[in-house]
Design a protein around this nucleic acid. Structure first.
Lengths: 383, 383
DNA sequence: CTGAAAGCGCTTACAG
DNA sequence: CTGAAAGCGCTTACAG
């Protein structure tokens, strides 16, 4: 017997005479005795029935129907069957708002990401939705466009909507965000960046170390004149951490990036090309390696290098961040740092669910950012 | 005066002595007279207050607080002020489920797309969310992975959650989807494909015509031996329509694609390369042009052509679908059909809102798919 | 295993 | 412009 609710337009089957039989039997066995007031024996419009009508049709109390939905094991088989028939017959769909009001839980979780235009966030959201759905939760989505104020508004709105938990990206947030969450006791996990300093639990990579290591790799190859096509970090702590990783790794060798070799932009292959051109056009000795703050910049830099006839990696090394598919397929595949977005999405779901189930031992998870070595880096020519 | 609700941890300001003053004044002016039962004069936990507590603190009825929230104009200024102070003081946030139960509206809309891994859907969702948010709606998201059964389940779940409207992608759906929606009278718009045959209103492009025209373009250039790297169309009506467009355009010239020149896959640059290789390796005369069913295939085909040393467009023309940024930046920019995803997202929001507002004249919108002519197509060598 | 009753936190006619 | 009351559709102790 099916225990989940059904709508009438699902492949019917058992609804025929059998059902009326079942209902008639029920009615006969327990002649009209209903708690409820004024009982319309048929739902006004299909798909619009309520639990009360189901109860009446099945000749049981509302409480029993409710139990049938939530803990079918505790209702007797014969009653179960009557209820199921009634549900099928009326096409009843439980009313989530009513349930939410009664239970103070909605079965929804909210996520706000900066943008879906970034594959990482899109991927993570996709698997998050997937995992959440499996556990019966519905996802509410917000995109902040990297605007902290907006992120805050979206989170508030989600709280109004009664989300049981929230996922956000990164550590930079509106100052009132965490107090708000804490006050209302809503579990929250911060994603994509791992840092012990985080106010909420988090799951992500250590952006600082990822680029520290990537820079180290370049340094170890012998590079000393290194440029950077950086992603603007104003409201993006991941980008900021990456820049800092580069800076520190170089500083440890007594090196600093020349201002003319530090280009900054937001996003895009085209922008990457332009920024690359800018660096190479600087009236100082050109770099022997360029670290690119994101995948689109790396792709753009590579494409522009090809167009301008630079020999990569013979003449110039290029290292990237993100691992977009095309980066591996270019004539010279790009060495880059891979962030496991799908894993982050999955683990975010795990953490959220764990907290929702009141599991105590939930703690932050560090995911591994890995350096994918391909062909775009080599020893500098002079070395 | 601020009319929207606030939480206590927002920059306070007016909450100081002024407030207590205002409240005290109110209390003095209208000594304790409350409708409600057992009245705890302070909210048990901050951020947990209810409308009733606000009403008590402001010495007005719940009805008036409700009016203040929904139609502030109709409450007198002095009362308005008292209520605002009480709200700020208690950090009251309205309980959406309670409101939904009372109004039978949730202020949410659901969208289910096949995947977020496709830039088009990601973009459309992003702007849909944006527009919806502006109108006060919250977005519920589902990803179906091109599984119609799953799409149906997600839509049902959203209906349970009481979404006021739904957006789906394409025309291929579970047979019970539309009946379900109609029965519950939930507005729905189908996106990305425009076709007069659609059961719901829709906003999108005519995929058939788009590829019919693209093929025509190749034909007009003089191509007669044309291959296709097609996207699997089993549960994807857009892909199916595109294939059909190619087929018909060719058939009108008495041409058909040789089976060995018809490669099929799902998605990916790498897959595009492979499929390209497959076609070129067929033991028959190679094609003079290849039409690619999606952007990743076009990118892959171009990259593989470069790698294998084919002269594009001198020796071989390539035409794509989708306009992913990298397609314009490759050494030979790819001629392709652009689908205005952002516009589709925006118009979907418009249509949804219009229907929610009960506007009568809502009808389907055809968006223009445009052929972006770049450098990957030329006359065939022999022509 | 099942029922009667109260309650979740809002809104909305209906009066005044 | 404002209040009292009923109701939205569920769940959950409390009894039996």
């Amino acid at each position: 017997m099916r225990l989940s609710t059904r709508l009438p337009n699902e492949p019917a089957g058992i609804i025929g005479t059998e059902n009326t039989t079942a209902i008639d039997m029920a009615k006969a066995a327990r002649p009209t005795r209903n708690e409820q007031p004024a009982a319309p024996s048929v739902a006004s419009r299909p798909g619009t029935a309520t639990l009360r009508e189901v109860a009446e049709l099945a000749c049981v109390s509302k409480a029993t129907v409710s139990r049938f939905i939530n803990t079918p094991e505790i209702v007797s088989p014969s009653v179960r069957e009557r209820i199921q028939v009634a549900i099928d017959h009326l096409g009843w769909v439980p009313h989530a708002a009513a349930r939410a009001l009664a239970t103070q839980r909605t079965g929804t979780v909210g996520a706000v990401v900066p943008t879906l235009a970034n594959e990482h966030f899109a991927t993570a959201i996709q698997v998050l939705q997937d995992e959440l759905e499996e556990k019966g939760y519905t996802l509410l989505l917000g995109c902040s466009e990297y605007d902290l104020q907006r992120e805050y508004r979206q989170v508030r709105k989600m709280l109004e909507r009664g989300v049981d938990a929230i996922a956000v990206v990164g550590e930079g947030h509106h100052p009132d965000l965490y107090p708000l969450l804490e006050q209302r006791d809503v579990p929250c996990v911060s994603t994509f960046t791992f840092a012990s300093s985080q106010r909420s639990i988090c799951v992500g990579v250590d952006n600082y170390r990822a680029f520290y290591d990537a820079t180290k790799y370049l340094l170890d190859l012998g590079h000393r004149r290194i440029a950077m096509i950086a992603q603007n970090a104003d409201t993006n702590d991941r980008a900021a951490a990456r820049r800092e990783g580069v800076r520190v790794a170089l500083a440890e060798h007594g090196i600093a990036i020349h201002p003319a070799h530090m280009a900054e932009g937001y996003w895009g292959v085209h922008e990457g090309r332009k920024l690359f051109g800018q660096i190479m056009a600087a009236p100082i000795e050109p770099p022997t390696a360029i670290v690119c703050g994101n995948g689109s910049f790396a792709t753009g830099a590579m494409l522009e290098a090809m167009a301008a006839g630079y020999d990569v990696p013979g003449h110039l090394s290029l290292i990237g961040f993100d691992d977009f598919e095309v980066m591996a397929e270019l004539p010279i595949p790009i060495t880059t740092v891979r962030v496991p977005s799908a894993e982050i999405g999955r683990r975010t779901a795990d953490l959220l669910i764990a907290q929702l189930n009141g599991e105590a031992a939930t703690q932050s998870i560090e995911c591994e950012a890995t350096l994918i070595v391909r062909e775009s880096c080599a020893r500098p020519r002079s070395a």
